[in-house]
Write a protein that binds this DNA or RNA. Structure first.
Lengths: 218, 218
DNA sequence: CCAAAAGTGTTTGATTTACACCCATGA
DNA sequence: TCATGGGTGTAAATCAAACACTTTTGG
């Protein structure tokens, strides 16, 4: 969301695409605007940068305010002018963040309704937020392929199937279970934590954890 | 270079890391500041964004002003606050550009001296420009590995050796000539243009051109 | 004993790397 | 004929992709 200022002044906004996996689908958090312009439309969360903190800290603060999530992966996407039609002197510094949906408590107020939307079914949005989402989708997909950033989408312990379904939701295709396991383990992304989870009339699944929760390429 | 404004106002600057190959080395264009703060120090070229054009067009305009180069590769790097210590409300949107040194005519004025510096031997710079250069070096290196953007570093026709030396200067290691040729050709990056260049007491080299001068991944 | 998900290795093909000799030219 | 850089192919190794059966559990 881009707050509005005098149209003649530079305005620096941050905008965040917050991703989480819900029901095996990639979701994005949107908030409903409750002011003109674009009143009542859904938009990406964001805020104006005041210069008091570093730019990225403004994004982090907004993320925490909306989701309560901490220690998540946050990365700058790009900066664009002209996102907000109403102020030609505004620019938006866009970020994307990955959160574990179970750690999230949405800030729900009467005038501020955050809501998760399936990332592939988002249509009309305030401003030109669609552009931002498309770039974010590209980036998260390629990032997942050669880094461990999925750690911020998953809880502390998880089964291999849960991990694989997370990857599949984002990349949009199925993987071979044996190859997936081999690759995650041989790239030192995950390791068994020794526990198992029983959840039905079948063999319990070993639980895994991420070896590192620092962004790492492989 | 970041122009100075009232310290209480938002200032949006663009900064460009302009790369070219000179004498088989990767070089960066710097300009000497002729105003406070940081008077007399070398800095990356840049300018203030006024909101009249798109952000990227401001960077393109600055690039042309400094080098005269057109149709070059220009990509946004990232945006940072705090690059300019003197105004806490300033941000810099940073770009990197690749130009062919032979197409360049530097704008040389008494108060504005642009100069090429070996990219790996840049030390003291105005503001925190070093950070920007480091990111740019990372980016150009990885970009070169899986895209054709080298087209903007080279003239219209070139030998395989010239191309390889360009890659070696940037990536910082030597390649096998046979494998390099194979990869460039099988990835449809370059093709012979039918001409040859004689330049000494040895077999003339075939000249190549880029198949496409649109940024393409492979 | 049945249904459901978990676990596990091997083979094939594709890609990447390493490596050495002959060719064309001008002096 | 010599010195210099230009041109070329093959074998080995590594990596990625395809693929099916056995195990554990609860009901």
């Amino acid at each position: 969301m881009q707050p509005i200022q005098q149209a003649n002044e530079n305005e620096i906004a941050t905008v965040i695409v917050i991703f989480a996996i819900k029901n095996k689908h990639l979701n994005i958090l949107l908030v409903k605007r409750s002011a003109e312009p674009e009143d009542n439309k859904w938009a990406l969360p964001g805020g104006t940068w005041t210069g008091e903190k570093k730019l990225q800290e403004t994004a982090t603060a907004r993320l925490q305010l909306e989701t309560g999530a901490k220690d998540v992966y946050l990365e700058q996407l790009f900066t664009i002018s002209g996102l907000n039609n109403y102020n030609p002197k505004s620019i938006a510094v866009c970020y994307f963040a990955l959160v574990n949906e179970k750690d999230v408590t949405l800030r729900a107020e009467k005038t501020w309704q955050p809501k998760w939307f399936n990332a592939n079914q988002i249509n009309s949005l305030a401003f030109k937020n669609k552009v931002v989402i498309e770039k974010a989708l590209e980036r998260i997909e390629s990032k997942l392929q050669y880094s461990n950033v999925a750690y911020s989408l998953l809880p502390n312990e998880f089964t291999l199937r849960e991990l694989q379904e997370t990857y599949e939701a984002i990349i949009g295709k199925k993987f071979d279970r044996r190859n997936f396991r081999k690759s995650m383990i041989s790239n030192n992304i995950i390791i068994q934590n020794g526990k198992f989870r029983k959840s039905g009339a079948y063999r319990p699944a070993a639980l895994y954890k991420f070896i590192s929760k620092v962004p790492t390429l492989f």
